[in-house]
Amino acid sequence: MPTALVTPLPTIHTAYDPLIVALQDASDPASGREGQSQVEVQLEIEDTLGSDEWRLIGEYLNPYDYTSDEAKVTLHKALQGALSPALPDLEAAAIQPIPGLVKNYRLKARDVVDGDPLGEFNTTSAAKAWLAGNSYMNIGQDLLTGKAYLFLTTRPLIRRFHPLELIHLQVLPVASGTPSLRIKATFKDGSDQTDVIALDPVTALVPFALNVSIPAYPKPLAYLEIDLTGLTGSAEMLTYRLTDNRNPYFRQLFFRNSLGGLDHIPLTGKSEEIQDTSGETLAAQEFPPTDAQVGNSRAYNQSATDSFILRSGWMSKYEINSLRDMRLRNEVYLLDGSELRRLILANGTQQIKKDGEFLFALELSAQYAWSEYAYSRS
């Protein structure tokens, strides 16, 4: 008889959370067999959604528990390694898919007794793996039920906004349909203006990215409210409050978060750029001496790393608390024109808040994710 899952795979699983499945052959329990019983499992992933082309990413041979007649297999680590979201085009006007963030997976399973397989593999129905997770105390929390969509951000839904900031949204729709983007602008005089932009159709549980083009407004802006309409379920709303910090030191960081989305923050503090060089010195023959133009030492294996000290400027404690996620994932990009430049943050201790203090800011040490062996004219 086929080896099957005791409980079906979840429709979509957050791959940073544990996923341990149990299998058994209910008609031929392991405890009733002669010999040692194990389960052999193959884990396959569909790299392109809907292609029906499967790639093997894990193989397991696990023993049965003869008390429960079940064998268990841990899957989430292999799923994490198979998920890798692509970066968006920050100049695209239309909806963009985010390949690699959500993928279908399935299992093939059969029993093995004393090293000999029993029959052919039984293939399960496909389910979805999502490169996301919950904090330790919230493992297993349902993030999607009842929602029309989920903004893939772990920052507060009410956040500051710099007038030079590019707004980029990443969304996981829970329902299929044809949504519209709604932008409501509230001006400093209390009046408002709403713009609705029709979008292309979306499919449930297939994530997409969208660059938001802010209309030219005739009045000074106080804040923006952005949401999606046209999908069944409750809708989230993002509120962007215009910052009064208009200094000339603006930079923008993008970072991968624990929902798998690409978040971004404006930096308004004074930043620093640093060059770190490394190399080795070879001492040549000292006698007879050469002149001072030549010397007797040579530098070689020279390289340089360009690094930064980045400062956020003042922000709320809720925003700075959420930026713990940026340091945890450590997939960070500095926006340079319309291009993203990969950074690596220095690990270490970062103060989040201090009792009795009410002004909050974040200082980050980072370096480009490559070394330089030559420089171009700039």
Rank of each mutant, 00 (worst) to 15 (best):
D306R: 14
D263S: 04
L166P: 00
I320Y: 06
E225Y: 00
L340P: 00
L143V: 04
S191F: 00
W314I: 13
A92P: 05
S378C: 05
A374L: 07
G269M: 02
G348R: 10
S271K: 11
I320N: 15
V174A: 14
D142S: 08
R311D: 13
P18K: 00
H168E: 04
V41S: 00
D142L: 08
K108Y: 11
T124A: 02
N211Q: 11
P220T: 08
G313S: 09
A185S: 14
R155D: 03
S213R: 08
I45P: 13
A204Q: 09
Q350V: 09
A127E: 00
L101D: 03
Q24F: 02
N245E: 07
Q96G: 06
A374D: 14
K188W: 08
N296P: 09
A198I: 06
F254L: 02
H76F: 09
Y318H: 12
A93I: 02
D116W: 06
Q367R: 15
A4E: 09
A204V: 03
Q252L: 03
F358Q: 12
L364W: 04
S278I: 00
L19S: 02
R341M: 07
L282W: 00
M315F: 08
A216Y: 04
L19G: 00
E34M: 11
L224G: 06
P215T: 02
W370I: 01
M326Y: 04
Y64S: 06
Q350M: 09
A126C: 02
Y217L: 13
D291F: 05
F121D: 01
S27A: 10
V21G: 04
A304M: 05
K72T: 12
T11N: 13
L224R: 11
G260F: 02
Q367I: 00
T243Y: 05
E273D: 12
R377L: 11
F287Q: 15
D25F: 02
E363K: 12
R251N: 07
A304H: 11
L172T: 01
T349G: 09
R159D: 03
F255Q: 01
F360Y: 13
V21A: 07
D111W: 08
V294Q: 15
K270E: 15
M1F: 08
T290V: 10
S297A: 14
S371N: 14
N330P: 02
T48L: 14
F358S: 10
S31E: 12
F254G: 01
S234V: 03
R251G: 01
G115W: 05
A82H: 10
R256M: 09
A361G: 11
I309E: 15
F250V: 06
A216P: 01
S37H: 09
G140N: 01
E319W: 05
S258Y: 06
T154P: 01
A93N: 15
L166K: 07
L343P: 13
L231W: 07
D47C: 04
S27E: 11
D89L: 03
E280A: 13
V332T: 11
L224Q: 11
L210K: 06
W314G: 11
T153D: 10
